Simulated assay, not measured.
Amino acid sequence: MPHRLPLFPLGSVLFPGLSMPMRVFEDRYRHLMSDLLALPADEPRRFGVVGIELGHEVGASSTQQLSDVGCVAEVRTVRRHEDGRYDLLVEGTERFRVDAFVDPDSDHPYLRASATALPEEPGPDAERHAERVGRLFARYCQRLTGIGMPAEPPADFPSEPVALSYAVAAAVIVDQFDKQRLLEAEHAAARLRLAAELLRRENRVLTALPLLPGGPFLRREINLN
């Protein structure tokens, strides 16, 4: 992880192993992209995605309250438009905890942080929790389909506890507060326990809902800076 990690605050949560499309148009984040693209070709282009707990994605960073735990995003594809905007596809690689925020300066007009990588551990009884979450998630998909939101996990949906914990965390349709709780869980077993709690809650809600018009399952939103 870089000594000082560039930060990209978002109103969304990125998880390790999952991808996210992004659109960059603010000047400071254009500067960030310019700095990343200037790196040697064999050096990963990375920045940290942190959740905005209070404030907005667009505007002065001084008005934002940011989460202390985020996810490193590695740029997989980038397209620069003639007007200077960028379209990105990033993939989450590892979680980190912010040790200290570094204010913008003339050379780096975007927020940075000194950060520490967080370990990825299965935790106690992770396999048992994974089996339970797998069953609950299958029921969740069935109930989404039952209310008119066709939902079917991809054929390569993971079963290994750490990967499954993040895949379900990214897939379940809950608010950012719950997504952040999932990201911050100490290990996969704790994340799976929380996911099971959320899935049971959502399954009860879905059972009570009337049929809805068909809609996309787990639609990918383009995150704007």
Rank of each mutant, 00 (worst) to 15 (best):
D125T: 12
E127R: 15
P109S: 11
V133C: 11
A117Q: 10
T93P: 02
E94H: 05
R85T: 11
R139E: 12
A138P: 06
V98M: 14
D107A: 13
R95F: 10
G92I: 07
D83M: 09
V90S: 05
R139I: 13
T116K: 14
T116I: 08
G123I: 05
D83I: 07
Y110M: 00
A126R: 11
A115D: 06
E120Q: 12
P109F: 11
T93A: 02
E127D: 12
T93K: 12
V98Q: 13
A115K: 03
D99Y: 12
V102Q: 11
D83F: 01
V133G: 02
E127F: 09
A115L: 03
D99M: 03
E121W: 15
A113G: 04
R95C: 06
D83A: 07
H129G: 05
F96E: 10
E94M: 03
A100S: 10
A138L: 09
G134Y: 00
F137D: 07
Y110T: 00
Y110D: 00
Y86T: 09
V90L: 03
L89F: 14
D105Q: 09
R112A: 04
R128P: 00
G84K: 13
L89Y: 10
D99V: 06
D103Q: 12
T116R: 13
D83K: 07
L118T: 08
R135C: 01
D99I: 07
A100N: 10
Y110V: 00
Y86R: 05
H108T: 08
H129C: 02
T93H: 15
P109R: 14
H108C: 05
R135W: 07
G134K: 00
A130E: 01
E120F: 10
A100K: 13
G134A: 05
A115G: 10
P124T: 05
A126S: 14
G84W: 07
R112C: 11
R85P: 01
T93M: 04
S114L: 15
P104E: 02
H108K: 12
D87T: 15
A126C: 07
Y86A: 01
T93D: 04
E131C: 01
G123M: 05
H108L: 00
R132M: 10
L136D: 13
E120S: 05
Y110S: 01
T93Y: 05
F137P: 03
P109T: 13
R135S: 04
G92H: 07
A130M: 02
R139D: 09
Y86E: 02
P104Y: 14
P109N: 08
R128Q: 08
D83H: 12
R85S: 03
R139W: 15
D103M: 06
V98F: 15
F137G: 01
R97T: 15
A100Q: 15
G84P: 09
T116S: 08
G123T: 08
F137Q: 06
A138G: 01
T93E: 12
A100E: 15
E121M: 04
S114T: 06
P109C: 09
A113W: 14
E121P: 10
